[in-house]
Amino acid sequence: MRRAAALLLLLLPVAGLLAGGAAEYVNLPGGKFRTALKYEDRKDDTRIAPFALMRKPVTNAEFLAFVQAHPRWRRDRVAGVFAEPRYLAHWASADALGAKALPQQPVVQVSWFAAQAYCESQGARLPTWDEWEYAAAADETRRDARRDPAWRERILRWYSRPSNQALPRAGLQTPNAYGVQDLHGLVWEWTEDFSSLLVAADNRNQGDADNAKFCGAGALSMDDRDNYAVLMRVAMLSSLDAKDTTINLGFRCAKDSK
């Protein structure tokens, strides 16, 4: 019994590595989309070009493979300006996962720089906020479920739980209408343009970038009063610097569709 378990443990990383070799992308059709954010220079719907998005967030196993192939992203070698000290700190060592980072769990405690480097190594990039919001507006059956209060409640419920439990594995949840998994309810995710989110939105509103970060700004920079689910994700991302990491922040990559 014990032996079988040990064998399983040995096999799992291998399986993870195999999965890491060929990350699955889902093609999303382009379309018009009304973002929940308010841009004064964008009166009409946003046009989303067709793109491809990873089916699920990048896992520890996949990221380990990347770090092994690109040792300058090992936590003991990475430059301080690209990753804060907690970068991959939950891994057993610079090149091994350990008990707190199971192969199939999404990788967390990664900086934006590291995430971007990973995607580049795959010939991809991080999704833009627009792309991410577009994909994440879907539930299991509808491409735009944002008007459904039950959908919003489900998302908010995850937001309101602290991250003091072990993360589930990536790819556990039912795919959404596009076939993408885990956009909600697993980890926060970096976007390519995260650093411009609130500042840009608010500059156009009040001419005072800082206002976005406190009282009332939410109501001002949101077109959709009810869509707190989106707002809170924006708030989360905008609290971060590109070298920051948190224990519930991961990423997935995107590609332009040819």
Partner: peptide, 14 residues
């Protein structure tokens, strides 16, 4: 302005 809000916006673990 903001009663400290703008100066204290703090990500998890910060």
């Amino acid at each position: 302005p903001g009663g400290g809000a703008a100066s204290s916006f703090t990500a998890p673990g910060h």
